[in-house]
Amino acid sequence: MSAAQANPALGVVPSHAIRLAGVAKTFGDVPVFSGIDLTINTGEAVAIIGSNGTGKSTLLRALNGLNPIDAGSVEVLGASVHALKGDALRRLRARIGFVFQKHFLVSRLCALSNVIHGMQARRSGPQVWAQWCAPAAAREEALACLQRVGLADKAMQRVDSLSGGQSQRVAIARMLMQRPEIILADEPAASLDPRAGDEVMELLFHLSREAGRTLVFVSHDMEHAVRYSDRIIGLSGGGIALDISATEARPQELTGFFAKPAAETADRPRAVYSGAAAA
């Protein structure tokens, strides 16, 4: 049974968190994808799968403006991401948590300082640069975030002395400190061993579920895609070639999706996803 099945809260929030219309991206002369139309509902957990080079990460990074797009529109939390600049873009990004494949922490600082950096979504200035100059309330909240990921005892440890799994959990705690409404994760378990990878995915899934946050993650692990999402989007042949409920999917079938030539998967009739509640 998938975790999505276990959660009855899905499908009750009808409004969309993310809407893409006609999105296209080209690197030089090489088209990555085009005509991407996609709507993701608030509180939905979506896995994006696809072979290397199909533009999964590019698409994910376009959702908070880290990557530009060449055509179409990306609307997140009611804002047109690529029309925003400066402070307006920063304010939108503050509402979107992003977990990278590598933790991207400041390696010479302790875990607590790195988590406090998440507060830069809400305020600026020296008080959010490091734990030693942070106000007591910020330190307490950061410690609570570390406790949430099971690393409160490592608060004062430099992150370059932590394991890969622990570092990724600190990155998740930093994201929690941000208090995001949407969580984006780009292969968050890819550089971890299977057990640490499962723990990180489990954590991300539960953090999104407990607060009704939307979760969109890229994964090459079909078990993760099935277990930690409501819906699976497959990219191939420059577009969305697969859009199915996670409860209908079998990891073996999804693995077969990768094995097929791009042209074949692109021609595959796209299943119409009718929402997790229908699953």
Partner: peptide, 19 residues
């Protein structure tokens, strides 16, 4: 990477430099 992570949080330029 850590600069990009802070930019994705919505940190200011000075926040990225000093953090």
């Amino acid at each position: 990477g850590s600069r990009e992570a802070l930019a994705s949080i919505g940190a200011t330029r000075s926040g990225i430099v000093f953090s």
